[in-house]
Design a protein around this nucleic acid. Sequence first.
DNA 1: ACATGTTGTGGAAGCGTTTCCATGGGGTAG
DNA 2: CTACCCCATGGAAACGCTTCCACAACATGT
Lengths: 341, 341
Amino acid sequence: MFAHMRPTIKDIAERAGVGLGTVSRVLNDNPRVSEMTRAKVMGAVRDLNYVPNLAARGLSMGKTQSIAVIAPFFTRSVFVERLHGIEETTSASGYDVVIYNVDAVEKRDRYFRTVPDPRRVDGVIVISLPPTATDVARFQRSSVPVVFVDVGNPLCQPFDRIVINDVEGGRMATQHLIDLGHRRIGYIGDVPQAGFNFTAGEDRFAGYREALAGSGIEIRPEYHLDGRFGREVARELAHRMLGLPERPTAIFASNDTQALGVLEAARDLGLDVPGDLSVVGYDDIEMTDFLGLTTVRQLLFESGRRSVDALLRRIEEPEREPLCDSLPVELIVRRTTAPPR
Amino acid sequence: MFAHMRPTIKDIAERAGVGLGTVSRVLNDNPRVSEMTRAKVMGAVRDLNYVPNLAARGLSMGKTQSIAVIAPFFTRSVFVERLHGIEETTSASGYDVVIYNVDAVEKRDRYFRTVPDPRRVDGVIVISLPPTATDVARFQRSSVPVVFVDVGNPLCQPFDRIVINDVEGGRMATQHLIDLGHRRIGYIGDVPQAGFNFTAGEDRFAGYREALAGSGIEIRPEYHLDGRFGREVARELAHRMLGLPERPTAIFASNDTQALGVLEAARDLGLDVPGDLSVVGYDDIEMTDFLGLTTVRQLLFESGRRSVDALLRRIEEPEREPLCDSLPVELIVRRTTAPPR
DNA sequence: ACATGTTGTGGAAGCGTTTCCATGGGGTAG
DNA sequence: CTACCCCATGGAAACGCTTCCACAACATGT
């Protein structure tokens, strides 16, 4: 028994009594094959339990049937949900998904340099990582389709991209607090991680300022604190902000995780939410529902889905105009916001 | 400019004025190359910005430099954290990770059939999905190393596996409640999803029964409810259980997500936790810390890390004895458990 | 009758690597 | 000085597929 020797198209060809080219044509649904021959080949395929060698096919065709996702901190809920959308759409089209997790700037640079290679993957989805001009130039040369998700950077204009209007989201969150009657509204955001240049935070902050300015509310620098992403840090920042002589009656956190930290700080200080303090988050990750956190929902899963759609479309038709798909944001009011006392 | 033509080793060879074999040897750190030639080749590599073609290498060597992870519902925290361990360890060794998410039985079967193919991946990690005897036979024939994580099934004995002692974990959680003085202890678990045969739930329940039996506490069937995984369902189950004439003073939920549902139900009913009701979860996913949920910690990240270690070791030495690595569980006492009133 | 398609087919060439074998030059030991 | 061996090297073969070209057989139009 040659149980260990995987059959090749040559084996199929011999068994079916046809030539190599014919087998290949059958396997690729080329119409130039007679019904009879097709049946013989398919029979042999079944008999020998043939499975094509993807490396060989890839080498010959210059296609790999796999796409890469380059994402930072892929364990954070935001990315997990986007990934979910990507995975679901991708697996439906028979492509494999290879994940490149970026947890350091060097890794991003390495992946940006080596992954977008037509001999490695058929397409790349980049999430939340703005490229430099050099990166962009390289991507364009590489001939691999690249789609950006959540990257506002104008350098990306030559590529398909799925963007989120974070300014608007920040504005909505803040406006909601203003509408409730708040005037002393704090903002807690994540400091752009060294070298990553995430833009979401800044945009949300811009929305915050816009809303305040629109209502003629003074922007007080002591009401703005940034810290490394994470609950613990946000908790400390909130402690600090809530310890101010004239403390805010509401805090908008630039993401739900930091909003949790704010809630924790409020709990520490014995402040009632929303009685003494209103809190708004951003992203609407799964557990905000449990906590009753008022937040700004962005269509995370959908953003993943659409990025794959865009990528596959471009693989089909490389020459179309780059599309820019803007996803809506929506305010979800729950139990952590109320008029100030 | 031939900007679009990726250089091959042939180009390198010409530019460096050496032969193809020599280039290949340099690239593969073969010691049989003089320092001078090596330098010339490396120079050419840099000049031409050469990147090896992985498909070609894979075809030639029968290796792909990528490993597959087959996991159910990869967006659930438990899997995300295991994946994190896998990703981190894998990327450090230069392998790619391809994710196959199983959200339906058919997908599991399809992946089990097609993924473990030596021409597709160098190794496979299967998480929480017990194989059938047929699957096992196929895996063994396929010659691709397979490592199981969180699969207790005895059929997996021929393979490396990382197991978690869920019986012990369930026992510890329950014993903790008993030690606090509880006698009426409920159990809420997830019903084995049709066809998936997850075993963790049953094991944890077995531990629960053991602990009760060990303390001579009667096992009351009305204190045992199973439902589909998820917060909402668990919340309903908890409602039902807490509506019993003689309601439990403590509930052990088979996983943290369901424990959240229990907490929600307690909140709905105005029960104080831990005053009126103690709650214990399982897994110690990230947010349990925030909620102060007492739970059983299993080393999720570590399980991922070790599965990769095991896999790479087996790729190196295919003939070693299958290892069975058992990870410890640990009770983390927080704020949701206390003696009964 | 012949030129002209059309259809199905076989097989060689080529994709970019690694690996194996052959070769030549230099060193070392006799 | 010879015999031997080792080291560095070049290049052919092989990996399994797709694709292109050539060709045979037959149909069609004049």
